[in-house]
Amino acid sequence: MVYRAAENRYEKMLYRRVGQSGLKLSALSLGLWHNFGDVDRLANQSDLLHYAFDHGITCFDIANNYGPSAGSAEENFGKIFHDDFKPYRDEMIITSKAGFYMWPGPYGEWGSRKNIIASCNQSLKRTGLDYFDIFYSHRPDPETPFEETALALDQIVKSGKALYIGISNYDAEQTQAITTIFNDLKTPYIIHQVQYNMFERTPENGLFDVLTAEHKGATVYSPLAQGLLTDRYLNGIPEDSRANRQDSPFLSVEDVDQRLAQIKQLNQIAESRGQSLAEMSLAWDLRNEVVASVIIGASRVSQLEDNLQVLDHLDFSDSELAQIDQITK
Rank of each mutant, 00 (worst) to 15 (best):
V256N: 02
G67S: 07
P68H: 08
W103H: 10
L311T: 15
A270E: 07
A292Q: 05
K79L: 11
L304N: 04
Y233C: 02
F81C: 04
S272V: 02
V18D: 02
H50V: 08
Q45D: 12
Y136H: 11
V220H: 00
V301W: 05
Q323V: 00
L124C: 05
G78N: 03
N205D: 12
D318I: 07
I93D: 01
L14Q: 10
Y10R: 13
N8M: 03
I167W: 02
L234Q: 10
L153G: 00
I263P: 05
L124N: 01
C120P: 01
A6T: 13
I178E: 01
N205M: 14
D133F: 04
S119F: 04
H50W: 13
R287N: 15
S248Q: 07
R126W: 01
E214W: 09
G105F: 03
D47N: 14
G67F: 04
D325H: 12
L282A: 10
L228Q: 02
L304F: 09
Q258V: 04
V294E: 02
L42G: 09
I237F: 05
A278S: 11
L23Y: 09
K125A: 14
M1A: 14
A292R: 08
D171K: 08
F316M: 02
N307W: 05
A218T: 00
G206M: 09
I134A: 03
H313E: 14
I237A: 11
R139C: 12
K86E: 11
L153Q: 00
K186I: 04
P68M: 08
H215V: 04
M280V: 10
